[in-house]
Design a protein around this nucleic acid. Structure first.
Length: 564
RNA sequence: GAGUUGGUAGCUCAGCUGGUAGAGCAUUUCACUUUUAAUGAAAGGGUCCUGGGUUCGAAUCCCAGCCAGGUCACCA
């Protein structure tokens, strides 16, 4: 990408060539017989034991005939001690004097064989007897240093660079890895929990002809051979329920969903959800199940059911508080929404500083009230239950109140992290609810609702009573790792394209190509070789010198064009 | 989407009301056999995000744009 190399990049390329000249392959193919990791070596330290380690060299402290270097592998860091005469017992000291001291740089992968010992200062170290170059690094890593007080100097913190070059972030910032290891643990704990109950992990289509299961703007793509539009899924729900229709007792999927909406620190265009559907259950059962699952996750991650999130300590110990949406609103506003008309709700919103507009139905108004007045107050895990029917088109009507549905959301730290239903399995009711949604969105909504006819057909064959639950994995991981930004729990959060490298014109490219093949060239010879018209040649040369790529050196009568 | 802060050496950052661009680490050279932010000595290294404008003169002031952060709004 970058045509111009920095001084340090040039030096490293020269070192690469010198290694080759010494007969050392800087990128050897051979297996390297690693037999330990740095943390194992430190934890089960045996003085004098011989081990073989490999990793990146993260620092070098050269003191004449002896040196210290820091080796970083997947598990941690270990100091290695290299003594010239022990590494090179014979006459030839090249491996130490040239290779180690001059040709190796911070960031290079090396393999070392040696014996464990403790330095005079008391640091567990490895005395190197054999040194192998495993991979040369051509770009300098940021140098992050920690002093004796544990204070970090020159930390690599620029979020843009950290996210764009996550590989560098992972190498240089110890602790970033931990977040992702925890992420994996969260998911594997859930998976084990589901598998132990006999539920089946499944995969359903990401490319869908009808994106259903949620109200959100989808990404659209196009299939050439079929010549039809396809949508990236916004939810898994409708496909997983088809599998319940098909006779599985329980199915679950860890899935990437995609929503073509705004981005902020809790929204990435692609995100991970887990959805699970279990037949013959209802949402009360699902609350117990969800509690148990989350408590297990917290225990697996922290060893106890508590964790610190920002200023708060959150306890995931069962049972979680349960409160109906109606009571929650009553608790924080004193307002009783039950039996209120749309007009009454609308007026109350206006009177209480909530932006309400004519397009909002009852459900939406209630949702606004909850979102505005209640949501942020639920720091400790709380199930909010029994949502209005209007805002839950896939959820079964409440067994005792036809205005409500059997739905719960789990709120933690003031945010929703899970959502669950007693799933609607009455195909005629489902069709009516879809049509009702369509009417609502026609009232003035940019989110087109799709009616999935095949899903309705599946329901008509009969779906057993089922409870389903979806949980945002990214947000759960944010809680479990005490991160306030979703970008910190995604390896590669979405970013705008990086600025393009300097665009070169065709004339400039042609000149540069010839020049690169010949390195420096006499100006007239160059002009003749390139064979451009006088005008193009002139413009091309001017452009290149403006970009700082070439320079013309005048020496008496001869003019030489130099590649910079 | 709105307003806000930032973009200077490989990295972290300084640079006053406009006057030849600085430090630490890293790099190069030299010294040094248990150091640890190793140390001592010397040297090199810049598209000051991009494009316009004002000016004798712009990293600095003005306008526009690009990228990012945090804030708010919208959105599940």
């Amino acid at each position: 990408m970058s045509i111009q190399l920095s001084e340090q990049e040039i030096v490293r390329r020269e070192s690469l060539a010198k290694l080759r000249a010494l007969g050392i392959n800087p990128y050897p193919a051979d297996l390297f017989p690693v037999n330990a990791l740095t943390n194992q070596v430190k934890e089960k330290f045996v003085e004098g034991k011989e081990v073989v380690l490999a990793g990146r060299m993260m620092s070098q402290r050269i003191m004449g005939k002896a040196s210290f270097a820091e080796l970083k592998d997947s598990a941690g860091r270990l100091q290695v001690y290299i003594n010239r005469d022990e590494l090179c017992p014979g006459e030839d000291k090249t491996l130490y004097n040239e290779v180690f001291k001059k040709l190796l740089d911070i960031g290079d992968f090396i393999g070392v064989k040696g014996t464990l010992f403790t330095t005079q200062v008391g640091e567990k170290s490895l005395k190197v007897k054999e040194l192998t170059v495993l991979s040369k690094s051509l770009r300098p890593l940021p140098i992050v240093k920690t002093d004796e007080d544990g204070k970090v100097h020159d930390a690599f913190t620029d979020p843009e660079m950290r996210y764009r070059q996550r590989y560098v972030d992972l190498v240089v910032n110890d602790g970033v890895k931990e977040v992702f290891i925890t992420r994996s643990k969260v998911m594997s704990t859930m998976r084990e929990f589901f598998n132990a109950k006999g539920y089946l992990e499944v995969e359903t289509p990401i490319l869908q002809p009808v994106p259903g299961g949620a109200a959100a703007r989808p990404f659209i793509t196009h299939h050439n051979a079929l010549d039809m539009p396809l949508y990236l899924r916004i939810a898994n729900e409708l496909y997983l329920k088809r599998l319940i229709v098909g006779g599985f007792d329980g199915v679950y999927e860890f899935a990437k969903d995609f929503r073509n909406e705004g981005m902020d620190k809790t929204h990435n265009p692609e995100f991970t959800v887990m959805e699970i559907y279990v037949s013959y259950k209802d949402y009360n059962w699902m609350m117990d199940f969800t509690e148990e699952m989350i408590e297990k996750v917290a225990l697996a991650v922290h060893g106890k059911p508590e964790c610190k999130v920002g200023e708060n300590v959150i306890s995931f110990a069962r049972p979680f508080k349960r409160i109906s949406l109606t009571d929650a609103i009553k608790e924080f506003t004193g307002f009783d929404i039950s039996g209120k008309t749309e007009k009454e709700l609308f007026d109350w919103c206006r009177a209480n500083g909530i932006d309400a507009d004519e397009s909002m139905g009852k459900g939406k108004l209630i949702d606004e009230i909850f979102g505005e007045k209640c949501e942020k107050n639920y720091i400790q895990p709380t199930f909010i239950t029994d949502y209005p029917k209007e805002m839950s088109p896939l959820c079964k009507e409440h067994r005792t109140n036809p205005d409500l549905t059997e739905r719960f959301e789990l709120m933690v730290n003031g945010k929703e992290i899970a959502n669950a239903y007693s799933e609607l399995n009455d195909p005629i009711d489902q069709r009516e609810r879809f049509e009702e949604q369509l009417r609502l969105s026609e009232k003035g909504d940019d989110e087109a609702m799709f009616i999935d006819q095949d899903f309705l057909r599946a329901l008509e064959y009969g779906m057993p009573p089922t409870s389903g639950m979806g949980i945002g994995i990214d947000r759960l991981v944010m809680l479990m790792t005490n991160q306030s930004s979703i970008q910190e729990v995604l390896f590669f959060p979405q970013m705008k394209l990086e600025k393009k490298a300097v665009e070169l014109t065709d004339a400039e490219k042609a000149i540069l190509e010839v020049l690169k093949a010949n390195n420096n060239m006499d100006l007239t010879a160059l002009k003749n070789t390139v064979g451009l018209s006088g005008k193009q040649w002139d413009a091309g040369m001017k452009g290149l010198s403006k970009h700082g790529l070439v320079k013309v050196e005048v020496n008496g009568d001869s003019k030489t064009c130099v590649l910079k």
